[in-house]
């Protein structure tokens, strides 16, 4: 069944001009980004699509490492929910990480990422699960009561409606007080993508606008 689905996934660069209109990228940047996509998507199977294994391999240089957050990032990139990324999904998602992308898109993306159960809010248990996962990834041990006090403190600050959950509005207010929470949402590399992958000019189909 999965194999059938991947057969239907579009491959290749597609229409770079249309993608440039849908994203903050220029046509040249879309073509340079496609060079990166080709590298990542050919790491395990050269089929023009990025699997979760290839995504993890690009992030951690190993397919062994399991990360709750790499999983969540992949799932949010995978808007067609087919378990694989085509170039359009990749470009649309990475556009949010561009330094020129609207801050509201970054705030929204990160909220969705942290909203593990996709209920429209973040509850204590989800937050604790993410803290525990982060500590485990980093090989750090913190006593449960210390973790609980970190969660308590966070909810005291963020949960201004005192209903035991952090909704999108509360998340937005928290981020505005702590802009560093968005630091992972901006990749300077995307601004220099045409110089990082200059080989795109050899494959360029169009003159940039």
């Amino acid at each position: 069944c999965d194999a059938d689905l991947s057969q239907q996934q579009p491959r290749g660069l597609g229409n770079p001009e249309a993608l440039a209109r849908e994203t903050v990228f220029s046509v040249s940047e879309i073509e340079a980004l496609y060079e990166l996509f080709k590298k990542i998507s050919s790491a395990v199977i050269d089929d023009g699509l990025i699997t979760k294994d290839e995504f993890q391999l690009a992030l951690f240089k190993t397919t062994k490492k399991e990360s709750l957050f790499a999983d969540r990032v992949f799932d949010l990139f995978d808007t067609k929910h087919k378990g694989i990324l085509d170039f359009k999904e990749f470009a649309l998602a990475l556009s949010i990480f561009h330094p020129n992308a609207p801050i509201n898109d970054k705030i929204e993306f990160l909220f969705q990422l942290y909203d593990l159960k996709q209920q429209g809010f973040i509850k204590r248990q989800e937050l604790k699960q993410m803290v525990v996962a982060t500590l485990a990834e980093a090989g750090m041990n913190l006593a449960d009561d210390v973790i609980e006090s970190i969660i308590d403190k966070t909810f005291e600050e963020a949960d201004t409606k005192h209903d035991g959950k952090i909704d999108k509005e509360e998340w937005r207010n928290l981020v505005l007080h702590h802009p560093s929470l968005l630091k992972n949402m901006t990749l300077q590399y995307l601004k220099d993508i045409t110089t990082t992958f200059p080989s795109f000019v050899f494959h360029s189909q169009v003159d940039d606008v």
Binding site: F60, L94, V131, T134, M140, L142, I150
Partner: peptide, 25 residues
């Protein structure tokens, strides 16, 4: 110090959230 951070600051340190590595091909 993780204990002085709020939970989201701590989570943002996760390597899984740092996509810079995608460009290190």
């Amino acid at each position: 110090q993780p204990t002085s951070m709020n939970a989201f600051e701590l989570i943002s340190m996760s390597k899984g959230l740092n996509l810079e590595n995608l460009f290190d091909t």
